[in-house]
């Protein structure tokens, strides 16, 4: 099959970019979206052109490295799917496919479809952890955790840090990402001592990094490849509010 792509090309963060049209031939429905881009890139290289830069690594939906805006939808048209797990069988060869990078001020374009998401690391560094030096831990069975809490913590912990939530959010807010971490750790007994400061510090970091504010439009959960629920945001807000009320 043959597809027409309209791909965002931009040489560097300071340079201007634009959409460039490419035809790619010999695409099979079993190819993943990234394999389709591989085909395009091999051809470009042989033609002496520079290939389209895009991030990827595991190619099985877990590392969170890939992420493209495909026809205006983060990670493309399939729900709960990363770009690397999206297959060409979902695309109509008659329609051109528009491929753009994630867009948010704290995610500057590095090159072409690649953006710098290190702002998400900064949010975690601000407090997204439990302080537990190696060697000091009590026996793992010292504190039983109700299965329901452990399961709920897991659901939030499944976030892969891809940034699709930011890309899709009309406000450019990473609230779902931040809330997923706050919820994961906040639901566990081990996470209690730092619960309030964690929530507050991560939220402050997020605001300081230039992200937009959350208005709970819910666009984020719809594109989230791991289906992180919107409710995690309430949990984060609850912690932040409690922290404020306690006058922290």
């Amino acid at each position: 099959m043959r597809y027409t792509l309209r791909v965002w090309r931009q040489r560097g963060p300071e340079e201007s970019g634009g959409l460039v049209d490419y035809d790619v031939d010999g695409i099979s429905p079993d190819m993943s979206f990234l394999e389709m881009l591989d085909v395009l890139n091999e051809r470009l290289v042989l033609d002496g052109e520079e290939p389209v830069a895009f991030d990827h690594d595991c190619r099985e939906g877990i590392c969170g490295m890939c992420g493209l805006m495909i026809d205006g939808v983060a990670h493309g048209p399939e729900r709960a799917t990363t770009t690397c797990q999206l297959h060409m069988r979902h695309f109509d060869p008659a329609e051109p496919i528009v491929v753009e990078p994630w867009r948010a001020a704290p995610f500057p374009v590095v090159r072409d479809l690649m953006v710098d998401r290190s702002a998400l690391d900064r949010i975690v560094e601000a407090g997204g952890y439990i302080s537990a030096p190696a060697g000091a831990a009590p026996d793992a069975h010292a504190v039983p955790i109700p299965k329901a809490d452990a399961d709920a913590a897991f659901t939030a912990a499944a976030c892969i840090g891809c940034g699709a939530c930011v890309a899709a959010c009309p406000n450019g807010s990473p609230m779902l990402f931040t809330a997923a971490k706050a919820t994961h750790l906040g639901l566990l007994p081990q996470g209690q001592p730092e619960r309030l400061s964690r929530a507050e510090d991560m939220l402050t970091a997020q605001d300081d990094l230039g992200f937009g504010g959350c208005t709970q439009t819910g666009e984020c959960t719809l594109v989230c490849p791991k289906g992180i629920p919107l409710e995690t945001i309430a949990t984060l807000n609850h912690d932040v509010l409690t922290a404020a009320l306690r006058g922290r």
Binding site: A132, A134, A140, D151, A153
Partner: peptide, 10 residues
Amino acid sequence: IDQCVAQGVP
């Protein structure tokens, strides 16, 4: 295992 549980591994 002790270490990971203390860190919040679910």
